[in-house]
Amino acid sequence: MNEVDFQLGEPLAGKRIVVAMSGGVDSSVVAALAARTGAETIGVTLQLYDHGEATGRAGSCCAGRDIRDARAVCDRLGIAHYVFDHETRFRETVVDTFADAYLAGQTPIPCVQCNTGPKFTDLLSLARELGADCLATGHYVRRLVTPTQVELHRGADPARDQSYFLFATTQPQLDYLRFPLGGLPKPRVRAIAADLGLGVAAKPDSQDICFVPDGDYAGLVRKLRPEADTAGDIVDLAGRRLGTHRGIIHFTVGQRRGLEIGGSPEPLYVVRVDAATRQVVVGPRAALAVSAAAISGLNWLGGDYDGPITAKVRSMAKPVPARLDGDRLRFAAPEYGVAPGQAAVLYAGERVLGGGWITATEPAALPAVAA
């Protein structure tokens, strides 16, 4: 296979590659491609859930059936496979953070927390302890080596690009990581798995939030934080009470469904979630428009780049023209659905410049409120 490049120099015999294996088709193909280079290849899986509780769980990763699948792939490839118990660390750094963010009225992105914690920081340390020359993962992003630095770029397949979730990757991490699938479309990856006889070739992809397999985010938060069910008021932009809600964990900025408010002449959306007062503030779509967002924890991969940028403020959104002004990201045109707790990821074309966490927004123009 000459479709991927581990960029370890030639020949690869004598090199050691650790592959982060979740039990899915992507990481399994990475392991197979790594083994075919001639390098010693080791598969490593982090157990992130209670093994007994997770056995047979669909739509997850790094648990139960997935661990067995990863081991079966390694057995077929004739490579070593190790499982490390990271359940406590995952719960503390990802799951608890997810619950606390909802209680704070934010919209969290646990996949970023997982990548910057257990998957990259912890796995990277394990790979170094194993004497590996690199850590390879199945993420759909590209790693380009230039004369001055290593750059992170969007995946070649727009439908699979995962760069939004990897904005917090640091430069030292990027120097050590490899993303062999970044230049491939997903159908090609499945075809490689089938050609190699891997049992996971047709295995469905895991969902975005793997530890909420049934999609009931509020139920998980309620289980972890019983106080999350405290009721409150739904108010309009002027603070007038329009109704009640069962808990702020059921609402995110931009949401329209579930408000159960009648009598409004136009559709109403969640404009703001106030954790202190437990109020859900609603208004017309125009009230969702923001001109700027406050950014914290900026991770910059752009080096000396000082040209035009675009920003992506939701995983499914398109990058839009913007400029970075200190800790403020200012949009060239009003942007909608910008929610505290989400990430703002910055690009120069296909290159990922970095990003940070949205902590607050500035309204572009609030609609007039009747007296």
Rank of each mutant, 00 (worst) to 15 (best):
residue 204 P to I: 13
residue 240 R to K: 14
residue 212 V to Y: 02
residue 246 R to Q: 12
residue 211 F to C: 03
residue 276 A to V: 15
residue 293 A to T: 14
residue 235 V to Y: 10
residue 257 R to M: 06
residue 308 P to I: 00
residue 200 V to R: 00
residue 303 G to F: 09
residue 246 R to Y: 00
residue 201 A to M: 08
residue 308 P to E: 15
residue 287 A to P: 02
residue 196 L to E: 12
residue 193 A to R: 05
residue 307 G to T: 05
residue 311 A to D: 01
residue 212 V to W: 01
residue 239 G to N: 08
residue 296 S to W: 01
residue 243 G to Y: 07
residue 292 A to W: 04
residue 193 A to T: 11
residue 278 R to T: 13
residue 217 Y to H: 15
residue 245 H to K: 04
residue 233 D to I: 05
residue 199 G to K: 09
residue 218 A to K: 09
residue 195 D to M: 07
residue 235 V to W: 03
residue 203 K to F: 04
residue 227 E to Q: 14
residue 251 F to G: 01
residue 209 I to T: 13
residue 281 V to P: 01
residue 270 V to F: 02
residue 254 G to P: 04
residue 305 Y to V: 12
residue 194 A to C: 07
residue 206 S to P: 10
residue 284 P to R: 13
residue 195 D to K: 15
residue 308 P to H: 06
residue 260 E to G: 07
residue 307 G to L: 02
residue 266 E to I: 05
residue 277 T to F: 02
residue 281 V to W: 02
residue 301 L to K: 10
residue 213 P to C: 08
residue 284 P to S: 14
residue 197 G to M: 06
residue 295 I to R: 06
residue 239 G to C: 10
residue 311 A to G: 14
residue 224 L to E: 05
residue 303 G to A: 08
residue 280 V to W: 00
residue 315 S to C: 11
residue 273 V to G: 03
residue 206 S to N: 13
residue 221 V to L: 05
residue 313 V to S: 13
residue 215 G to P: 04
residue 223 K to M: 05
residue 280 V to F: 05
residue 310 T to D: 14
residue 291 S to N: 08
residue 307 G to Q: 02
residue 234 I to T: 10
residue 282 V to Y: 00
residue 224 L to K: 15
residue 215 G to V: 09
residue 311 A to T: 10
residue 241 R to S: 08
residue 296 S to A: 15
residue 233 D to A: 13
residue 227 E to L: 05
residue 259 L to R: 08
residue 212 V to I: 15
residue 290 V to M: 07
residue 194 A to D: 12
residue 304 D to T: 15
